[in-house]
């Protein structure tokens, strides 16, 4: 009863927020509502018992993507362009597609029906046998890191490719005097935010520790490499937001972080190659150790570690390059202001 009520409320709110996002012109408000949308989605996932997905959605959808949207908006402008064309044709296409999709759902089995195709092929084996075959309490980790390790490898490669793409498109060669000017701006900012700075300093160790907990607790509860990487990266974001990018660049060496991104994915691939050398198939952890279950544990630990390294460092790379662009813009504006003052 209460579950039904929560589901209905959350879904209604989702629709309301989505309509508000579509109708709003101020992009900052839109980005903030998108953050709320992420939180709502994640709450809904929790209500549906998909805890691991909710974890990822909370960290990525509500946290990091909102932050990146803000950075982009500061570079592109705050209000939406007025619509010049008539949206009738688009509306027609969307309505037809939507009604076709709804028509398609009529053929689908009911939610949670035991004879649904998704519950008849591999799912029973995952649920019944994973404890003997993999020996990991959290079923999601067993599926993600062992049964479907090759899919996960593909996902990590996608994340890595995104990092490379951002580097190729957005990275700018930096000069030392640029950093000096930016540092001046940041210093003046620091003086004004003493309380935020102190609280942040106290929080960051907890966030990093919590990220490690999520990384290694993934076998037993919700969590794993993806979530841990994002949480770890968000601690670094928080540092960069409050202490300035040039300070953060001194703490986090950019070439090392690029290396870590590559090493993470290399570790993942190497686990696969080693298991092939030991006589199994690619990413078959049973052969990594004399005992199959111990082999599974070792393999899952190593690949989660690789995933965590790659995700964290790619997130840091993306954020630093986005925010670096924004800071360059700001610096140019500041120089113009100084010139204007001199002219006066």
């Amino acid at each position: 009863m209460i579950g039904l009520l929560i589901d209905i409320t959350l879904l209604t709110l989702l629709v309301g927020v989505a309509i508000a996002i579509a109708r709003m012109k101020d992009l900052f408000a839109v980005a903030m509502l998108a953050g709320i949308y992420g939180l709502l989605t994640a709450s809904f996932f929790v209500a549906m018992d998909a805890v691991d997905v909710a974890f990822t959605e909370a960290a990525v959808g509500a946290g990091i993507s909102t932050l990146l949207m803000f950075v982009v908006i500061t570079m592109t402008g705050r209000s939406e362009d007025p619509v010049r064309h008539k949206p009738l044709l688009a509306l027609l296409v969307v309505t037809i597609t939507g009604s076709l999709l709804i028509f398609g759902t009529l053929d689908m089995p009911y939610f949670g029906a035991p004879d649904a195709p998704i519950h008849t092929h591999v799912a029973p084996r995952y649920i019944n046998d994973s404890m003997q075959e993999v020996g990991v309490i959290n079923l999601v980790t067993a599926v993600l890191a062992s049964y479907r390790a090759f899919d996960t490898f593909g996902e990590v490669v996608v994340v890595f490719t995104a990092g490379i793409g951002v580097l190729a498109l957005l990275s700018v060669a930096r000069r030392r005097e640029d950093d000096a000017v930016i540092e001046l701006v940041n210093d003046s900012m620091h003086e004004q935010h003493l309380i935020l700075r102190i609280v942040t300093k106290m929080l960051i160790p907890f966030i990093l520790l919590f990220a490690l907990y999520v990384q290694f607790h993934g076998d037993f509860g919700p969590g794993g490499g993806f979530q841990a990487g994002v949480i770890f990266a968000s601690a670094i974001f928080l540092y960069a937001l409050l202490f300035g990018l040039s300070t953060a660049r001194r703490v986090i060496n950019q070439s090392i972080i690029r290396l870590v991104a590559a090493v993470g994915i290399l570790l993942y691939g190497c686990v696969g190659v080693v298991s092939m050398l030991n006589g199994g198939s690619f990413l078959d952890y049973n052969v990594l150790s004399s005992d199959p279950i111990a082999g599974q544990h070792l393999g899952i630990l190593l690949i989660e570690w690789g995933v965590g390294c790659t995700v964290a460092s790619v997130m840091v790379i993306i954020f630093f390059n986005f925010a670096g662009r924004q800071e360059d813009n700001q610096k140019a504006q500041n120089e113009e202001d100084i010139d204007a003052n001199r002219a006066l």
Partner: peptide
């Protein structure tokens, strides 16, 4: 665990929005 992540993410997004709405300096 998820609730803890939310508490942290919430703080980060408030700091981020203040930082990038141009109202931070």
């Amino acid at each position: 665990d998820i609730a803890i992540v939310y508490a942290l993410i919430n703080f980060i997004s408030v700091v981020g929005v203040l930082r990038y709405s141009g109202t931070f300096e």
